[in-house]
Design a protein around this nucleic acid. Structure first.
Lengths: 126, 126
DNA sequence: CAAATGGTGACCCAAATGTGAACAAGTTGT
DNA sequence: ACAACTTGTTCACATTTGGGTCACCATTTG
């Protein structure tokens, strides 16, 4: 057992989400996500502060290592990319919540089901 | 129970894939693959780290015993050769996944069905 | 309502990866 | 020794991917 700096935990997890930063690997419900380097860094930072609001400034600093320039939308764009991939990995769940004017907050939870227009089809197992 | 050096397991297996390094044998769903020496070593190394990302540098070191020279594509070429043979052995499955800028990850799984060219007939009634 | 803020698809383009083929070296069979 | 194969290595070219940036639409706020 190597003594790791406790500031860098080996793995982070919240709900069905798990990230192993040193391995550049993220999983949802055990299955690996295909994330780019920046996407993974961003998810990691959100996960470090799970369930707390993280400002764009802070995300910009931690993920890109630079100040957030005025008019810079890259944070938003990458939040979107993450949302798309997370939704694909676990349909019906919300992960990243927007706090208007403040930032984003990671909190995996089943999304409130939209009322079915057409009744659910029964699901056949394999 | 013979006490083998635990660093060299007799057999490695993940899903339908099985490799017995000491016998130079690889099987998919029980049937043997025809692999060259380098191909087998590479598959073995990937299998040892199943479901984790293995960098090209590491593959070069472990399979060829040398540093990865800049511009060296041999890792990619052999990943390709493996993919071809694995696909032939078990059509419709993916085994080796590319993590852009990071490396490869072995994880046998049925490939996501290609999206229908012609959309599924909808069953909305009215 | 208007202004601010966030969502999202499209685009550019350099770099990473996929892939067929040529080549050389080694093996096998005769 | 020679031909017929096999295999490892290297190229060249084709494709894909990802980071960054816009533009335009949608939502929220006051």
């Amino acid at each position: 057992m190597t003594a790791l700096p406790q500031s860098e935990p080996e793995a982070l997890a919240v709900g069905p989400l798990e990230v192993i930063p040193v391995e550049h690997l993220a999983r949802v419900n055990g299955s690996a996500l295909m994330l780019s380097v920046v996407e993974l860094r961003m998810l990691t930072e959100l996960l470090r502060r799970a369930d707390r609001i993280v400002s764009r400034e802070e995300l910009s600093t931690r993920v890109w290592g630079r100040e957030l320039r005025p008019g810079d939308r890259s944070v938003d764009v990458y939040v979107h990319k993450l949302r798309v991939k997370l939704e694909a990995a676990l349909p019906g769940w919300s992960f990243i919540h927007t706090h208007f004017g403040l930032g984003y907050r990671l909190c995996p939870q089943p999304r409130k089901a939209a009322p079915r227009l057409v009744p659910e089809r029964s699901r056949a197992g394999s």
